[in-house]
Simulated scan of single mutants.
Amino acid sequence: MKFAVIGGTGLIGSQVVRNLNAVGHEAVPHSQSTGVDVITGQGLDEAVAGAEVVVNLTNSPTFDEASPAFFRTSMDNLLAAAAKGRAAHFVILSIVGVDQVPELAYYRAKSLQESVLAAGPIPYSIVRATQFMEFIDAVISWTADGDTVRLPATPIQPIAAKDVARAVTDVAVGAPLNGIRNIGGPEVFTLDELGRTTLAHKGDSRTVVTDPTAGMFAVVKGDVLTDKEAHLAPTRYSDWLS
């Protein structure tokens, strides 16, 4: 099969392209660096032409109130191009529990992306993942101040990017779900605990202070962990750190 992977040069997209090509499919990566712009529409028709499956792994450049406009415009443009190219399956990557945290503009934006896809003209699949292990360092940096890192005790179920890419690949080659598949890591930590584990592994002497008001995850009050129907990935956080 032929796949157009939009955002195919990023952390997840590049691995999805590699996975698909390794098993004999034709997966072509597209991004701004290859001349494709999901906001202006430049290059989109050409990118998806002849593709049976479109995988959209693009992301908003910001996590603020500008993000809903990005996902609305990009999805409208991509769906129009994919319909014109007669794609039979459209796949996106979202977040477990994304509809449970309306306080976060970025989560509202991803919920909007899901809604636009579900209301569109193409059979679809949504893969919802928990937080990537690769992003933990960034989460720590957001609330670091000198020798102290402040983190809330929000439950986190980290998943390795390679496992996310594998799940997206598996869904993309299958029949459209016309629904959602949840994936997550095999373990649950509180975010402050995860911060301490990460810093200790790196030999970082900074102190993690539990602060229920610190960072974007402080507003996460609902259950954003996987349910019993979810697919759990094999990579444990300690193994990933090593």
Rank of each mutant, 00 (worst) to 15 (best):
F3P: 06
V5S: 05
I6M: 08
G8W: 14
G10Q: 06
S14A: 14
V17S: 01
V17W: 04
R18Q: 12
L20K: 10
N21S: 00
H25W: 11
A27K: 05
A27H: 00
P29I: 11
S33E: 07
G41A: 11
G43T: 02
A47T: 08
A49W: 04
G50W: 09
G50Q: 10
A51R: 07
E52D: 10
V53S: 13
N56P: 03
T58S: 06
N59I: 03
S60I: 01
A66L: 15
A66M: 12
F70L: 01
T73H: 14
D76T: 05
D76V: 08
L78T: 15
L78F: 12
L79N: 13
A80V: 06
A83L: 05
R86K: 14
A87S: 15
V91A: 06
I92A: 11
V101A: 12
V101T: 09
E103C: 12
A109V: 04
A109L: 00
K110S: 11
Q113M: 13
Q113H: 13
Q113A: 14
E114I: 06
L117I: 12
A118M: 12
A119Y: 00
A119P: 05
G120W: 03
P123Q: 12
Y124F: 15
Y124K: 10
S125W: 06
I126C: 07
V127N: 06
A129D: 03
T130H: 05
T130G: 10
M133I: 03
M133R: 01
M133T: 04
I136M: 06
I136P: 00
I136D: 04
A138C: 10
I140G: 05
A144G: 11
T148P: 09
V149F: 10
T154E: 07
Q157F: 02
Q157L: 03
I159T: 03
I159N: 01
K162W: 11
K162P: 08
V164D: 09
R166G: 07
T169I: 02
D170H: 15
A172Q: 10
A172S: 13
A172N: 13
V173H: 07
A175P: 06
N178M: 12
G184Y: 00
E187H: 01
L191R: 00
D192R: 04
G195E: 11
T197I: 14
L199G: 07
G203M: 05
D204P: 08
D211I: 07
T213A: 13
A214I: 02
F217T: 04
V219N: 03
V220P: 08
V220C: 08
D223K: 01
V224N: 15
T226I: 10
L232M: 14
A233V: 02
D239T: 08
L241M: 14
L241N: 10
L241D: 14
S242K: 08
